[in-house]
Nucleic acid binder design. Structure first.
Lengths: 165, 165
DNA sequence: ACCGGAAGATTGTAGAAACAACTAGAATGC
DNA sequence: GCATTCTAGTTGTTTCTACAATCTTCCGGT
């Protein structure tokens, strides 16, 4: 590894965080793949739409919420549209823009796959921690996000889920 | 999102952790790509070799350390070999096995790219936290890893960097 | 009114990852 | 001592992601 100027506590924390960074997304992904036939990213796209009014969002807005480039989103949405989980239609107000809307099938998909996903999150993260640690984790990740995303492009999203007190 | 049975504190922590899970790997990756022309995974492979005796490891052992399938590793190693950063040679003890060894150029590559990487880790994670939070993060990630990796395949690696006290 | 540039999105292509099939060598069992 | 099985790796194919190029529409200035 790269011990360079990190003290033992810092190094221990970093090595473990790095391991979590590898294993946790893989775990979430494979659960969703297995149980719902969706990538975690696919799921995320559908989930964001499911929370939007009318189950509809403009491509640009959706891209921001899922932290993807428009190009990537466009490809993914194309596949999901092919599978009948969502549909695209031109935005009336701005003829450059495209709206993505969940279909009924897509909405059902979210409803049926969300519980399993939440269960995995619980099992791997939440239930592994004490209530106090959950609070600490919230504060720690918040601090890190201020570094990663100083301008808060993403901030609007996660600050919607306000920390208690 | 999927509020299902998560209380506000849990939800806040999870949403932020999920954001970190997206943004942090991307940040590390793009720094290494830009400054060293390496994927984070490439770097990781080279870094693990650089810590091994003789800068050499068997493919299987290496795969375990970087948490990859042998197939994936094989492809990556092939590219890195093509770039002259490492070399493969048959293992004398077991003729099924292959050893991967860092070349001099590969070793130099690690030496020159490690500082930048550590700087990024500092800037985005360590320096964002108080000393106490670093300790907490270590404990939290450790708890999560016990869930993600109960059998400790990966454990041997990160427990090498023992937590202080 | 019109020109330049920015915003919104799609498409094509090249590089990287996942998955499955396959080969060679070693270990085990009878 | 041979057949079965397991271990170690590689290769090929399909799928996804990243990046660059392109197109249309909107806006701002003059």
């Amino acid at each position: 590894m790269d011990t360079q100027g990190l003290n033992p506590a810092q190094l221990a924390a970093w090595v473990r965080l790095a391991a979590v960074l590898e294993l946790l997304p893989a775990a979430l992904d494979s659960q969703l793949r297995r149980d719902a036939g969706l990538t975690h990213f696919d799921y995320y796209v559908l989930a964001m739409l499911s929370e939007a009014p009318e189950h509809t969002l403009r491509m640009t807005a959706l891209a921001e919420q899922v932290t993807a480039t428009l190009a990537r989103l466009s490809h993914v949405v194309q596949r999901l549209e092919g599978r009948g989980l969502l549909e695209r239609f031109p935005c009336p107000e701005d003829r450059r823009a495209t709206n993505a809307r969940l279909t009924e099938a897509g909405w059902q998909k979210v409803l049926e796959s969300a519980p399993g996903h939440v269960t995995t999150v619980r099992a791997t993260v939440i239930d592994a921690l004490t209530a106090e640690q959950v609070t600490q984790l919230g504060e720690i990740t918040d601090a890190i996000l201020h570094r990663l995303d100083p301008d808060g492009a993403k901030k609007s999203l996660y600050q919607r889920y306000d920390p208690p007190n």
